[in-house]
Each structure stands twice: as structure tokens, then as C-alpha cells.
Amino acid sequence: MRALLLFSGFVDRLSAQVGKWVYRLVLVTVLISAFNAVIRKVFRYSSNGLLEIQWYLFAAVFLLGAGYTLMRNEHVRVDVLAGRLSARAQAWIDIFGTVFFLLPMVVLICWLSWPQFVESFVRAEVSSNTGGLIVWPARLLIPVGFFLLGLQALSELIKRIAYLRGMGPDPRDQAGRAPDAAAEGLAGQAPAAAGDVK
């Protein structure tokens, strides 16, 4: 289990680094959008390339940030019933949802999107819009984003199993903390928590 927790800590740190870059992409997207709006209004000039780069960057923020959002436990949840259950019951619900819904979806989308990226790359596909951009980088975002989401899903699964086995704290309590601190908390509390198991 310790090796799995080390893997989980590595994935959390990777997701945190990707999250930092996604924050920067949000700023870049806003600046490009503002620049595009200004030149369109002031100079009566419009560029399909500028519009498409906005779409690409928005897709990158959404897809590449999904794993980071999962790590922070900030995805939308419907906790009308689950929120009233114990922390252990919530951990079991998360495990069930991850194993039977999230991971199969990630595998399916990666499997379906990879050939589309490869075909687009080999054909050097370009947007059908005049002055449009090459398409394959946008298609590549889909399998990469879902692969990172799948890695983080495995990390969350490991943390919940460790919690249920008494080898770490409740991962939901760790979600808002820095990944290094959360990983240290999971690894460092393992002996003490294991003694508390009844």
C-alpha cells in the first residue's frame, strides 16, 4: 500500500503542476479574447485564427484542468443523500463511482479519441475556416486531458482505500491542501491510523 500511496503522491504533484499551467492559460485566453475584441471593434479586423486559438485554449483549460479539479474535490456533486452519510460511506460511494463510472468513461474516451488525433496529425488537418489553424493540437487535448483525469482518478481511489484501511486521513479533508502536504499526511499518518482500526 505504501508504494501505491507514493504513486498517488506523484500523481497529485503532477496534477498540481498541470493546474498551475492551466491558471496561466486562463490569463492568456482572456488577453487574446480582449485583443481580438479590440482589433475587431477599433480596426474592423477579424481573424478566424484568433477565434480558434481562443477555442483551443478554452478546451485546454477545461480538459487539462479536470484532473486538478478532481484532486481538489471541486467537481460538481449532488450530495443530497451522500452528504448526510458517514465519511466511510462517502468513501465507498466514491470508490464505486470511480471504478464503475469514471475510469470506464476515461478508458472509452481515450480509446475513441486517439485514432482521431492520429488521423488528423497524419493528414495535417487544417480548419475549414479561412485563416484557420491546424486541428491536431486540439484533437490531442482530448486523450491527454482524459489520461490525466484517469491518473488522478486512480490516485483518488488509492487514497480512499488507504483511508478505509486505516492507513491515512479522509481524502476529502486533504482535498484543499497542497499536494505535497496531503501526500505527506497520507504517508506519515499510516502507522498511527492503522492502530486506530477497530
Results as ranks from 00 to 15, higher is better:
G65A: 09
L4T: 03
A82E: 12
V78A: 05
V11G: 02
P104C: 14
F117N: 10
A87E: 11
Y45L: 15
G97I: 15
F7Q: 03
T98Q: 06
G150T: 01
R13V: 11
L31Q: 00
P104V: 11
M71L: 13
P169G: 08
E125N: 09
I134L: 06
L5R: 03
K20G: 07
A182V: 08
F96C: 12
A91R: 05
S128L: 12
A181V: 08
L81M: 03
I39K: 04
S8R: 07
L63N: 04
E156G: 01
K20C: 01
K20A: 13
S8G: 08
K20T: 07
L57E: 08
I53C: 09
N73P: 00
L112N: 13
D196I: 00
A82P: 00
V61S: 10
L108Y: 15
G145F: 00
F96D: 11
Y163M: 07
W21V: 04
I93V: 14
W136Q: 10
A34G: 01
A190Y: 03
P115I: 09
N36V: 03
V118I: 13
I32D: 00
N73V: 02
T69V: 15
G168M: 10
K41H: 03
L27P: 00
L151T: 00
V78N: 05
V30C: 05
L141V: 00
Y163C: 04
G65T: 14
P115T: 12
R2V: 04
Y23A: 14
I134E: 02
G176Q: 02
P143F: 02
L70Y: 12
W111K: 13
A66F: 01
W21D: 00
L157S: 02
